[in-house]
Design a protein around this nucleic acid. Structure first.
Lengths: 148, 148
DNA sequence: GCCAAATGGTTAGGCAGGCTAATTGTATGC
DNA sequence: GCATACAATTAGCCTGCCTAACCATTTGGC
Protein backbone atom coordinates (compact mmCIF):
# COMPACT_ATOMS: atom_id res chain seq x y z
CA UNK A 1 0.00 0.00 0.00
CA UNK A 2 2.61 2.53 1.10
CA UNK A 3 5.48 2.23 -1.36
CA UNK A 4 8.83 3.88 -0.78
CA UNK A 5 8.45 6.43 -3.55
CA UNK A 6 5.19 7.66 -2.12
CA UNK A 7 6.67 8.05 1.34
CA UNK A 8 9.75 9.74 -0.14
CA UNK A 9 7.45 12.25 -1.79
CA UNK A 10 5.78 12.99 1.53
CA UNK A 11 9.20 13.49 3.09
CA UNK A 12 10.14 16.01 0.44
CA UNK A 13 6.83 17.78 0.92
CA UNK A 14 6.87 17.86 4.69
CA UNK A 15 10.39 18.07 6.04
CA UNK A 16 11.43 21.33 4.37
CA UNK A 17 8.21 22.95 5.55
CA UNK A 18 9.10 22.04 9.12
CA UNK A 19 12.68 23.20 8.71
CA UNK A 20 11.57 26.56 7.37
CA UNK A 21 9.57 27.21 10.50
CA UNK A 22 12.28 25.94 12.81
CA UNK A 23 14.92 28.07 11.11
CA UNK A 24 12.64 31.12 11.18
CA UNK A 25 12.04 30.55 14.88
CA UNK A 26 15.77 30.20 15.49
CA UNK A 27 16.35 33.57 13.84
CA UNK A 28 13.65 35.19 15.93
CA UNK A 29 15.40 34.22 19.13
CA UNK A 30 18.42 36.46 19.55
CA UNK A 31 20.43 33.30 19.34
CA UNK A 32 23.41 34.15 17.10
CA UNK A 33 23.15 30.38 16.51
CA UNK A 34 22.37 29.23 13.01
CA UNK A 35 20.87 25.77 12.32
CA UNK A 36 24.19 24.24 11.32
CA UNK A 37 25.83 25.43 14.51
CA UNK A 38 22.94 24.18 16.57
CA UNK A 39 23.29 20.80 14.92
CA UNK A 40 26.96 20.57 15.75
CA UNK A 41 26.33 21.56 19.33
CA UNK A 42 23.55 19.02 19.59
CA UNK A 43 25.95 16.36 18.45
CA UNK A 44 28.63 17.45 20.89
CA UNK A 45 26.11 17.48 23.71
CA UNK A 46 25.88 13.72 23.36
CA UNK A 47 29.57 13.01 23.19
CA UNK A 48 32.73 14.82 22.23
CA UNK A 49 34.28 13.70 18.97
CA UNK A 50 36.79 14.79 16.40
CA UNK A 51 36.30 17.00 13.39
CA UNK A 52 36.19 14.25 10.80
CA UNK A 53 33.42 12.38 12.55
CA UNK A 54 31.43 15.56 12.88
CA UNK A 55 31.83 16.40 9.20
CA UNK A 56 31.00 12.90 8.10
CA UNK A 57 27.79 12.66 10.11
CA UNK A 58 26.70 16.11 9.01
CA UNK A 59 27.34 15.27 5.39
CA UNK A 60 29.55 18.32 4.92
CA UNK A 61 33.19 18.68 3.91
CA UNK A 62 36.01 18.90 6.41
CA UNK A 63 36.79 22.53 5.62
CA UNK A 64 33.17 23.47 6.14
CA UNK A 65 33.05 21.82 9.52
CA UNK A 66 36.37 23.32 10.45
CA UNK A 67 35.00 26.77 9.75
CA UNK A 68 31.76 26.19 11.60
CA UNK A 69 33.64 24.90 14.62
CA UNK A 70 35.96 27.90 14.50
CA UNK A 71 32.99 30.20 14.89
CA UNK A 72 31.69 28.22 17.84
CA UNK A 73 35.13 28.27 19.45
CA UNK A 74 35.34 32.01 18.91
CA UNK A 75 32.03 32.37 20.75
CA UNK A 76 33.33 30.27 23.61
CA UNK A 77 30.73 27.55 23.09
CA UNK A 78 33.06 24.75 22.05
CA UNK A 79 36.58 23.77 23.11
CA UNK A 80 39.25 22.37 20.80
CA UNK A 81 41.78 19.98 22.29
CA UNK A 82 44.54 18.16 20.50
CA UNK A 83 44.31 14.42 21.12
CA UNK A 84 47.40 13.28 23.09
CA UNK A 85 47.70 9.88 21.43
CA UNK A 86 47.46 11.26 17.89
CA UNK A 87 48.34 14.90 17.70
CA UNK A 88 46.79 15.27 14.25
CA UNK A 89 43.33 14.91 15.71
CA UNK A 90 41.30 17.63 17.34
CA UNK A 91 38.84 16.59 20.01
CA UNK A 92 35.83 18.84 20.38
CA UNK A 93 33.58 19.33 23.36
CA UNK A 94 31.01 21.78 24.62
CA UNK A 95 32.07 24.34 27.17
CA UNK A 96 29.79 24.79 30.17
CA UNK A 97 28.61 27.99 28.57
CA UNK A 98 27.94 26.15 25.33
CA UNK A 99 25.89 23.53 27.10
CA UNK A 100 23.92 26.21 28.90
CA UNK A 101 23.11 28.07 25.71
CA UNK A 102 22.15 24.88 23.93
CA UNK A 103 19.77 23.97 26.74
CA UNK A 104 18.33 27.45 26.79
CA UNK A 105 17.77 27.60 23.05
CA UNK A 106 16.45 24.05 22.87
CA UNK A 107 13.96 24.87 25.57
CA UNK A 108 12.59 27.81 23.60
CA UNK A 109 12.46 26.07 20.26
CA UNK A 110 10.82 22.96 21.60
CA UNK A 111 8.39 25.13 23.48
CA UNK A 112 7.52 26.98 20.32
CA UNK A 113 7.01 23.82 18.32
CA UNK A 114 4.95 22.36 21.12
CA UNK A 115 2.70 25.41 20.87
CA UNK A 116 2.27 24.83 17.17
CA UNK A 117 1.34 21.22 17.88
CA UNK A 118 -1.35 22.18 20.35
CA UNK A 119 -4.23 21.99 17.84
CA UNK A 120 -3.55 18.31 17.21
CA UNK A 121 -5.66 15.69 18.92
CA UNK A 122 -4.10 13.07 21.15
CA UNK A 123 -4.50 10.52 18.39
CA UNK A 124 -2.76 12.79 15.89
CA UNK A 125 0.13 13.41 18.26
CA UNK A 126 0.63 9.71 18.71
CA UNK A 127 0.53 9.20 14.96
CA UNK A 128 3.20 11.86 14.43
CA UNK A 129 5.31 10.51 17.24
CA UNK A 130 5.24 6.98 15.84
CA UNK A 131 6.03 8.19 12.35
CA UNK A 132 9.05 10.18 13.50
CA UNK A 133 10.45 7.40 15.63
CA UNK A 134 10.10 4.99 12.74
CA UNK A 135 11.75 7.49 10.41
CA UNK A 136 14.75 7.47 12.72
CA UNK A 137 15.47 3.90 11.69
CA UNK A 138 16.52 5.30 8.33
CA UNK A 139 17.67 8.80 9.26
CA UNK A 140 19.47 8.30 12.55
CA UNK A 141 19.65 11.42 14.69
CA UNK A 142 22.87 12.30 16.46
CA UNK A 143 21.74 10.76 19.67
CA UNK A 144 21.56 7.31 18.21
CA UNK A 145 25.04 7.35 16.72
CA UNK A 146 27.29 5.58 19.13
CA UNK A 147 30.96 5.13 19.55
CA UNK A 148 32.52 1.93 18.15
CA UNK B 1 0.24 9.87 26.50
CA UNK B 2 1.95 11.74 23.69
CA UNK B 3 2.26 15.32 24.90
CA UNK B 4 3.22 18.14 22.59
CA UNK B 5 6.63 18.72 24.19
CA UNK B 6 7.61 15.13 23.65
CA UNK B 7 6.59 15.22 20.01
CA UNK B 8 8.35 18.57 19.56
CA UNK B 9 11.52 16.94 20.89
CA UNK B 10 11.22 14.15 18.35
CA UNK B 11 10.76 16.72 15.61
CA UNK B 12 13.94 18.49 16.65
CA UNK B 13 15.77 15.18 16.77
CA UNK B 14 14.51 13.83 13.47
CA UNK B 15 13.84 16.59 10.98
CA UNK B 16 17.35 18.08 10.86
CA UNK B 17 18.81 14.60 10.38
CA UNK B 18 16.61 14.13 7.35
CA UNK B 19 17.45 17.57 6.02
CA UNK B 20 21.17 16.89 6.32
CA UNK B 21 20.86 13.85 4.11
CA UNK B 22 18.60 15.55 1.62
CA UNK B 23 20.90 18.55 1.36
CA UNK B 24 23.94 16.30 1.00
CA UNK B 25 22.17 14.38 -1.75
CA UNK B 26 21.26 17.63 -3.48
CA UNK B 27 24.89 18.66 -3.48
CA UNK B 28 25.97 15.33 -4.92
CA UNK B 29 23.76 15.81 -7.95
CA UNK B 30 25.39 18.42 -10.17
CA UNK B 31 22.23 20.40 -9.57
CA UNK B 32 23.44 24.00 -9.09
CA UNK B 33 20.22 24.12 -7.06
CA UNK B 34 20.50 24.72 -3.36
CA UNK B 35 17.70 23.71 -0.94
CA UNK B 36 16.28 27.20 -0.66
CA UNK B 37 16.07 27.56 -4.42
CA UNK B 38 14.45 24.18 -4.72
CA UNK B 39 11.88 25.23 -2.15
CA UNK B 40 11.03 28.37 -4.07
CA UNK B 41 10.70 26.46 -7.30
CA UNK B 42 8.53 23.87 -5.63
CA UNK B 43 6.26 26.64 -4.48
CA UNK B 44 6.10 28.22 -7.92
CA UNK B 45 5.35 24.85 -9.47
CA UNK B 46 2.02 24.92 -7.67
CA UNK B 47 1.07 28.45 -8.53
CA UNK B 48 2.79 31.66 -9.47
CA UNK B 49 2.77 34.32 -6.81
CA UNK B 50 4.46 37.56 -5.88
CA UNK B 51 7.63 38.08 -3.97
CA UNK B 52 6.06 39.05 -0.67
CA UNK B 53 3.97 35.91 -0.50
CA UNK B 54 6.98 33.79 -1.29
CA UNK B 55 9.06 35.47 1.41
CA UNK B 56 6.30 35.23 3.97
CA UNK B 57 5.66 31.53 3.47
CA UNK B 58 9.37 30.78 3.48
CA UNK B 59 9.84 32.72 6.67
CA UNK B 60 12.61 34.83 5.18
CA UNK B 61 12.95 38.55 4.63
CA UNK B 62 11.96 40.26 1.43
CA UNK B 63 15.54 41.13 0.44
CA UNK B 64 16.59 37.53 0.92
CA UNK B 65 13.84 36.24 -1.31
CA UNK B 66 14.55 38.95 -3.85
CA UNK B 67 18.15 37.76 -4.06
CA UNK B 68 17.26 34.10 -4.29
CA UNK B 69 14.79 34.81 -7.07
CA UNK B 70 17.39 36.89 -8.90
CA UNK B 71 19.68 33.88 -9.03
CA UNK B 72 16.89 31.70 -10.38
CA UNK B 73 16.01 34.30 -12.99
CA UNK B 74 19.65 34.56 -14.01
CA UNK B 75 19.64 30.79 -14.55
CA UNK B 76 16.52 31.07 -16.68
CA UNK B 77 14.46 28.96 -14.31
CA UNK B 78 12.00 31.62 -13.18
CA UNK B 79 10.38 34.54 -14.95
CA UNK B 80 9.64 37.92 -13.37
CA UNK B 81 6.59 39.84 -14.61
CA UNK B 82 5.25 43.11 -13.31
CA UNK B 83 1.60 42.78 -12.33
CA UNK B 84 -0.53 44.95 -14.66
CA UNK B 85 -3.10 45.95 -12.05
CA UNK B 86 -0.51 46.96 -9.46
CA UNK B 87 2.81 47.74 -10.99
CA UNK B 88 4.59 47.57 -7.64
CA UNK B 89 4.15 43.83 -7.56
CA UNK B 90 6.28 41.25 -9.31
CA UNK B 91 4.58 38.06 -10.37
CA UNK B 92 6.85 35.04 -10.48
CA UNK B 93 6.45 31.84 -12.43
CA UNK B 94 8.54 28.89 -13.53
CA UNK B 95 9.88 28.87 -17.07
CA UNK B 96 9.42 25.62 -19.01
CA UNK B 97 13.09 24.97 -18.40
CA UNK B 98 12.63 25.60 -14.70
CA UNK B 99 9.79 23.16 -14.55
CA UNK B 100 11.80 20.56 -16.40
CA UNK B 101 14.77 20.90 -14.07
CA UNK B 102 12.55 20.78 -11.02
CA UNK B 103 10.96 17.57 -12.25
CA UNK B 104 14.31 16.08 -13.10
CA UNK B 105 15.87 16.90 -9.76
CA UNK B 106 12.79 15.89 -7.82
CA UNK B 107 12.85 12.55 -9.55
CA UNK B 108 16.43 11.88 -8.50
CA UNK B 109 16.03 13.04 -4.93
CA UNK B 110 12.83 11.13 -4.36
CA UNK B 111 14.45 8.10 -5.92
CA UNK B 112 17.37 8.39 -3.57
CA UNK B 113 15.21 8.76 -0.51
CA UNK B 114 13.08 5.86 -1.66
CA UNK B 115 16.25 3.77 -1.78
CA UNK B 116 17.07 4.74 1.77
CA UNK B 117 13.56 3.74 2.83
CA UNK B 118 13.86 0.29 1.28
CA UNK B 119 14.87 -1.45 4.54
CA UNK B 120 11.59 -0.47 6.18
CA UNK B 121 8.77 -2.95 6.42
CA UNK B 122 5.39 -2.23 4.91
CA UNK B 123 4.04 -1.52 8.35
CA UNK B 124 6.84 0.92 9.07
CA UNK B 125 6.29 2.72 5.79
CA UNK B 126 2.64 3.17 6.58
CA UNK B 127 3.50 4.47 10.03
CA UNK B 128 5.88 7.04 8.58
CA UNK B 129 3.40 8.03 5.91
CA UNK B 130 0.63 8.61 8.42
CA UNK B 131 2.92 10.57 10.70
CA UNK B 132 4.04 12.89 7.93
CA UNK B 133 0.57 13.51 6.61
CA UNK B 134 -0.62 14.32 10.10
CA UNK B 135 2.33 16.62 10.61
CA UNK B 136 1.20 18.57 7.58
CA UNK B 137 -1.83 19.73 9.51
CA UNK B 138 0.54 21.88 11.54
CA UNK B 139 3.34 22.52 9.06
CA UNK B 140 1.53 23.01 5.79
CA UNK B 141 3.69 22.31 2.73
CA UNK B 142 3.53 24.65 -0.24
CA UNK B 143 1.07 22.51 -2.03
CA UNK B 144 -1.62 23.02 0.54
CA UNK B 145 -1.34 26.78 0.67
CA UNK B 146 -4.10 28.15 -1.46
CA UNK B 147 -5.04 31.50 -2.89
CA UNK B 148 -7.57 33.53 -0.99
C1' DG C 1 67.24 6.40 10.97
C1' DC C 2 65.19 8.52 6.99
C1' DC C 3 62.16 9.79 3.56
C1' DA C 4 57.71 9.04 1.14
C1' DA C 5 52.93 8.22 1.66
C1' DA C 6 48.77 8.56 4.22
C1' DT C 7 45.88 10.93 7.49
C1' DG C 8 43.70 14.96 10.19
C1' DG C 9 42.91 19.92 9.92
C1' DT C 10 43.39 24.56 8.29
C1' DT C 11 43.72 28.27 4.86
C1' DA C 12 42.34 30.62 0.58
C1' DG C 13 39.01 31.87 -2.74
C1' DG C 14 34.37 31.77 -4.49
C1' DC C 15 29.27 31.15 -4.54
C1' DA C 16 24.57 31.32 -2.20
C1' DG C 17 21.42 32.34 1.71
C1' DG C 18 20.39 35.07 5.74
C1' DC C 19 19.97 39.68 7.94
C1' DT C 20 19.23 45.17 8.52
C1' DA C 21 19.18 49.70 6.63
C1' DA C 22 18.55 52.61 2.96
C1' DT C 23 16.65 53.45 -1.87
C1' DT C 24 13.50 53.37 -5.92
C1' DG C 25 9.07 53.15 -7.98
C1' DT C 26 4.11 52.81 -7.64
C1' DA C 27 -0.59 53.40 -5.25
C1' DT C 28 -3.44 55.58 -2.14
C1' DG C 29 -5.66 59.01 0.80
C1' DC C 30 -6.24 63.50 2.61
C1' DG D 1 -1.04 67.62 -5.37
C1' DC D 2 1.55 65.97 -2.03
C1' DA D 3 2.55 63.06 2.03
C1' DT D 4 2.21 58.40 3.26
C1' DA D 5 2.17 53.56 2.64
C1' DC D 6 3.61 49.58 0.23
C1' DA D 7 6.41 46.26 -3.12
C1' DA D 8 10.69 45.30 -4.38
C1' DT D 9 15.67 46.14 -4.99
C1' DT D 10 20.40 47.50 -3.66
C1' DA D 11 24.29 47.71 -0.53
C1' DG D 12 27.03 45.79 3.04
C1' DC D 13 27.97 42.26 6.27
C1' DC D 14 27.94 37.47 8.30
C1' DT D 15 27.78 32.32 7.81
C1' DG D 16 27.50 27.88 5.34
C1' DC D 17 28.94 25.26 1.58
C1' DC D 18 32.32 23.84 -1.87
C1' DT D 19 37.27 22.67 -4.09
C1' DA D 20 42.13 23.13 -4.20
C1' DA D 21 46.17 23.79 -1.88
C1' DC D 22 48.77 23.64 2.26
C1' DC D 23 50.69 22.33 7.03
C1' DA D 24 51.43 18.96 10.72
C1' DT D 25 51.69 14.50 12.32
C1' DT D 26 51.91 9.51 11.96
C1' DT D 27 53.07 5.36 9.59
C1' DG D 28 55.66 2.23 6.87
C1' DG D 29 59.24 0.66 3.76
C1' DC D 30 64.10 0.46 3.06
Amino acid sequence: MADTTLVATEIIRTIPAVMRLVAAELRKQQSQLVPAQLGVMGALAERSCNLSELAEFSGVSLPTMSGTVSHLVAQGLVKRTRAPHDRRMIMLELTPDGRAQLDHLGYHIIGHIATLLAPLSDTDLTTVQNGLVTLQKVFPPWESIKRD
